[in-house]
Design a protein around this nucleic acid. Structure first.
Lengths: 140, 140
DNA sequence: CATATGTTTGGTATATGCTCAAAACTTTTG
DNA sequence: CAAAAGTTTTGAGCATATACCAAACATATG
């Protein structure tokens, strides 16, 4: 994934990647299916898809791990979520509401837009749902 | 549609409804397919779906018209779009960017959130892409 | 009223996401 | 250290949303 547009992954795939990042290391299929509340077979399938994109490495019967590309992409995904949540919280949404709304639509917000929002907010360090790291954020 | 959550329709269905509202009156299948750049058969299908929800009335070979429910729902959809676009434009996105981003994700933003954003912005009357009418906006 | 135009139907395709049952593999344990 | 128990994967199948094409159908017009 050379240029990140932010629109590469489907909503669910984004969830998987964010979870893998937060969990860290080798993650078991069951952990994922428990967390995302789906059948283990569903998470196995999703992981196979992600493995094909090169974002994760799947060791069958062992677990999944983010690749280096996956790490930095997941970091973008989490920053995007945090920035959008923070933005929404500025409009009177509670942290939970903001976080929930952002989770629903974040996969459709481009990196370009996120970068502008981030810049406009002055590259904040913390959101309502986590710290923000301005690594791939196109600081201007 | 008793209580509007804002999450009733798929992205494309939202587009159809917004277009029908803007066009007004009885709209022909071809107008729709031309506008949304899809095959006429595709728009016929979408319209059938919408007709089942009671938001539009389809008179075969004649055209489609919003029902009263469809009218007010479409008004909500357009306000949502306008409010989200305006919000984004406050973060340095150009009108075109703001409008484009909003179009991508608006169908996943709840009415509750939109109402809060609208209130927080002081119920603005105009956005970067159209006027705003605060009819169903839960003015507080 | 026959033909041109516009619309709908039916078949088919892709993408995403999901479940269940059975097979395959790993781990535990007697 | 083999059988039982537990976990993971595979394969078949289903649902939704979106799309196209070709054929059938309705309407409008010359």
């Amino acid at each position: 994934m050379q240029e990140i547009t932010g629109l590469e992954l489907s909503p669910k795939k984004v969830e998987y990647l964010k979870f893998l990042f937060k969990k860290g290391g080798l993650v078991r299929t069951t952990d994922i299916s428990t967390q995302l509340k789906v059948d283990p077979s569903t998470s196995t399938k999703a992981i196979s898809d992600l493995a094909e994109t090169g974002l994760v490495e799947h060791i069958p019967y062992r677990g999944v791990r983010l690749t280096e590309a996956g790490q930095s992409y997941a970091e973008f995904l989490i920053n995007r979520h945090n920035i959008l949540s923070l933005m929404l919280s500025h409009y009177g949404l509670s942290p939970e509401e903001a976080c929930g709304e952002a989770s629903r639509f974040e996969s459709l917000v481009s990196k370009t837009a996120v970068d502008k929002i981030c810049t406009s907010m002055g590259h904040p360090m913390t959101s309502v749902c986590g710290k923000i790291r301005h690594v791939s954020c196109g600081i201007s």
